[in-house]
Structures are given as structure tokens and as C-alpha cells.
Amino acid sequence: MRKSNKWVHILLGIASFVSVFPILWLLLTSFKPVSEIYSDTFRILPKAFTIENYVDVFTRSGGVFWTWFLNSVIISILTTVIGLILSTTAAYAISRFRFRGRKGITMSFLLTQMFPGILLIVPLYIMIDQLGLLNTYVGVVFAYLAITVPFCVMVLKNFFDAIPIEIEEAARMDGCSQLGIFWRMVLPLSLPGLAITAFYSFLTTWNEFIIAVTFLKSHDMYTLPVGLHHFVNQFSTQYHLMAAAAMIITVPTLLLFFFAQRLVSNRYFYKKG
């Protein structure tokens, strides 16, 4: 091994440890009994292994955790699906059609990415309140779309730009309509881009806290990150429940990641050379 390689490996090892250790600790903590979590002795591995924390998360307060889980699933899926429909069509139009205001629209998508998302909360809150959509799925999905769609459009536009125009022209000659070209050629050829943007939208929505805590008022409308916050109260933090709930929250994103990863490898384009 060359000297420079050795240092790269050491640095990568440290970086991986820093990233993975907190998650590993959380996972191990979620299987520790309450007494062990709050004891003064520092232990990494659980002395006694238990799934009691998980059972407790699901059963406390009449199973409200299930409701939050369901809310998160509905909101994240709606944002991802609607976001993909909007961003694929918008990105395709920007990529392929020449129309008045095209550059301005592209710039405005870029511009929204230059400001922190929190700046949007106040205007979005006012708009959603005026529409009477506070504390509803639609309201919060609307807010999430405002954050995710511009990014997805920019990513997808680059994917669409990379598809040779001749493929679309060949399809046109073969009898495809414009919509047919979009559906049969452009979307299948952009699967990696679709996977990346879908994963980004889902992850952003699934983990989002500030918009959810601001726009969702009642207990039964909370999403998981807001619900998780409820394990912290004025006088104590229920670390055992937080650890178990945090691990449960990670499962869907992990599943989605493994699914999306398979689509991300660009399988179709020709070998070079």
C-alpha cells in the first residue's frame, strides 16, 4: 500500500466511525433496559437485551405512534408523488422547449435554492392559513412541495439534457406523440434521476421538523419527527423511547435507499471506447 493511500484509509476510517458510531450507539441503546440507560456506568453493549422499549413506543397513549407513522407515510408519499409529477414535467419543458421566460423560470428555481428553507415558513404559513389548510395533509404537502420541487427540477433537467435528442426524434418518426416520447423514452431513460429525486423528496419530508411542528397543530396530525419531540418534556427526556422510536423512523428510509440505489446506476447508455 502506498503511503498516501494509507493516510486516505485512516482518514476515511475516522470519518466513517464519526458518522456510524452515533447511529450504532442509538441502536444499541434502543435494546437496553431503562435502568441500564440511566445508570452511571458507561457501557456500549447492552448488559441485558430487551425489546421492551419498542413495545412501549407502539403501545403508549393508545398507540398514537401508529397514527404519527401513518401521517408521515401519507405526507411523504403524497409529496414525493406529486413532486415527481410536477418536477418531471417542468424539467422536461425547460430542457426541451424554447419558450418565452424559460431562462427566468430556470433562474427562479435556482434562486429558491439559495435561501435557507426557514425563510419560506412565514409566507407559506400566511398563504396556507388563508387557504384554510393549516393542520391538514394538503397544507403541509403544499409547503413541502415548495421546498423540494425546485431542487428536483434542476436535477431532472440535467438528466433530460443528457438524453440525445435523436432518440426522441427517432421515436417521433416511429409514431410516438410528444406525451408518448415523454412516457416511453424520457422517463425510462431517466430512472436514475427519478430515483434520486424521489429519494430526496421522501427523505426531506420524512425527516422534516420545523414546517410540521408549525403547520400541524393537533396531536393526531403529528408526523414522526414532531411526535419524537414529545418524548422530551419539561422535566425529563425519555431516552429509551427516543432511541427505539428513532430506529423505527429510520427503517422506511433505509428500505427506500436500498431500492433507489439499484435504480441509480446508469444502466442503459452505451459503453465508452
Binding site: P164, E166, I167, E169, A170, R172, M173, M185, P188, Y268
Partner: peptide, 19 residues
Amino acid sequence: EPKDRNIAMVFQNHALYPH
């Protein structure tokens, strides 16, 4: 429309459908 002209075209980069 191109599809209604009963024409077939071969492109410089062949434009095969990769998928």
C-alpha cells in the same frame, strides 16, 4: 407529421433506444 409521412430515418449516432 413525421410519423404520417411513411418515412424511416437512420441517424448519425443511430439513436437506438437504450432501454
